[in-house]
Amino acid sequence: MRIMCLNGWGGKLHDRLVPYLASASPDILCLQEVVHSPATGKDWLDYRDGDHQLPQRANFFRDVCAALPDHAAIFCPAAQGVLWDGAEAVPSQWGLATFVRRSLPIIGQAQLFVHKDFSPDGYGEHPRSRNAHAVRVHDFEKGRTVIVAHMHGLRDLSGKQDTPERLAQAHQFAGLCSRFAEPGDRVVACGDFNVEPGSATFGILAGIGLSDLVTGRGFADTRTSHYAKPGRFADYMLVSGNVDVLGFDVVAQPEVSDHRPLLLEI
């Protein structure tokens, strides 16, 4: 089973990202920063937050669905705000998506908010609403059940240091993973946590038996050349002790986002 985790950067590098996902075709894809704008047929819209502007693939979720036709697709919105087509405001949802190969039956799933709640009337003030999603799948070939959970951690304008809100999100995420797991389940937890490797987040997740593969295997960077700020860690993938890791990589090439894909084979 191949599991990929990636912050898709709103599909900004769509022309590279979508072919890469189609070619890699992981069994389970955990994707953050997913845009879903069903009210428009436009390909591109603009995100505006003060002086910050970023092109967004208007229907990024739909694009990835088309690239992975053999996968069940689940979109989990954190908020609905607006993107812009020139001077026209277009309603647009933003959140997480999980894609599971249809040969792996989803026998359970859960989602919750690790910070605030669904924001239906705008993206809101920073730090904004953040959510998590988990699927429980059965692997017939190996005769086992696997839980894969992911979240997009808080972006705090002051930096990636621990805050009470970040510690609360870690406890929420750990609670989702532990409550959802049955005895004997393999657990994989991942996402763009938006914290440094020294964060108390990892002690909280270690408390439910999860260990990080990114720092544990000596990787020193989860960002690409499209990210120019200091602090090269953001994305992590943790596993329970009963997961037999056959391979793990923080993929450096191709660059399909400002984050690198995390690719696990179990």
Rank of each mutant, 00 (worst) to 15 (best):
M4S: 03
G10N: 12
H14A: 13
D15K: 10
V18E: 09
L21K: 01
A22Y: 07
A22S: 15
A24R: 14
A24D: 08
S25A: 15
P26F: 04
I28L: 11
L29P: 00
L29E: 01
Q32E: 14
Q32D: 02
T40H: 11
K42F: 06
D46H: 03
H52K: 08
Q53N: 07
R57F: 03
F60A: 04
R62Y: 04
R62P: 01
D63E: 14
D63C: 12
V64H: 04
C65E: 14
I74A: 01
Q80K: 08
A87Y: 00
P91Y: 09
W94C: 06
L96V: 02
V100F: 09
R101F: 07
A110H: 11
L112G: 07
V114E: 03
D117V: 07
F118C: 01
P120I: 04
G124K: 07
G124I: 05
H126F: 13
R130W: 03
A132R: 03
R136D: 11
D139W: 00
R144T: 13
V146M: 11
H150A: 02
L154M: 07
R155H: 14
Q161A: 15
D162K: 05
T163V: 03
P164K: 00
L167I: 14
R179V: 02
F180V: 09
G184P: 08
V187D: 02
V187A: 00
D192R: 06
N194I: 00
E196R: 05
G198Q: 14
F202H: 04
V214Y: 13
G218S: 07
F219P: 06
F219E: 12
A220T: 14
D221Q: 13
T222D: 13
S225I: 05
H226Y: 15
Y227P: 00
Y227M: 07
Y227L: 06
P230F: 02
P230G: 04
F233G: 08
D235C: 01
Y236F: 15
M237D: 12
M237A: 12
G241D: 14
V245W: 09
L246D: 15
L246N: 11
G247M: 12
D249A: 12
V250L: 05
E255L: 13
E255M: 14
D258S: 10
R260P: 05
L263M: 09
E265T: 15
I266F: 15
